[in-house]
């Protein structure tokens, strides 16, 4: 089935098997826990901010292939960005995953993030893909707190 191959692209399966930046990030300046009560996915995102930009990001937790791959891709994508850049990136990804209009996915522009767009054909799984990004936004908000996608 084509839709399924779009969801479980090699990029996603690769990040799931060998997630990037999986593990505690020490030291870190911000962290938040994200939880999806529907399926039990639980992610902890940690970042280290230095001189106004994200020097590093890491994650731990339990989740499906989509939520893990999304977190892994995110830790690559936000590295080196300043606050404005991170906010823009989060907005772009959420638009890509949940926007009303079918997105124009540009592999050159989006990189591995493009692989996440396959989730659009599987509405129950969209929350798996957005969890890491919502959690990062929470980590960077003034008061770190647990976020829920429900």
């Amino acid at each position: 089935m084509d839709d399924l191959s779009d969801l479980y692209q090699d990029i996603i399966l690769g990040h799931n098997k060998r997630p990037h930046h999986y593990g505690e990030l020490n030291p870190h300046t911000h962290e938040a826990e994200g939880y999806n009560p529907l399926c039990g996915d639980r992610l902890c995102i940690q970042v280290r901010e230095k001189n106004g930009s994200l020097e590093a990001a890491g994650f731990t937790g339990e989740g499906c292939a989509i939520s893990k791959a999304s977190a892994s891709i995110m830790t690559d994508a936000v590295k080196g960005l300043d606050r404005e850049g991170v906010a823009k990136k989060i907005g772009e990804v959420l638009e890509l995953l949940t926007g009303r209009d079918e997105p124009v996915v540009d592999l050159m522009e989006h990189g591995d993030i493009a692989a996440l767009a396959g989730v659009r054909k599987f509405p129950p799984r969209v929350k798996c893909a957005t969890l890491a990004w919502h959690t990062l936004a929470a980590a960077l908000s003034e008061e770190p707190r647990a976020v829920s996608t429900e």
């Binding site: 089935m1 839709d3 399924l4 479980y8 989509i66």
Partner: peptide, 13 residues
């Protein structure tokens, strides 16, 4: 190798 949620999605197809 697969999380229950991923199993559920593939079985559904």
């Amino acid at each position: 190798t697969a999380h229950p949620h991923d199993i559920g999605t593939i079985l559904d197809t």
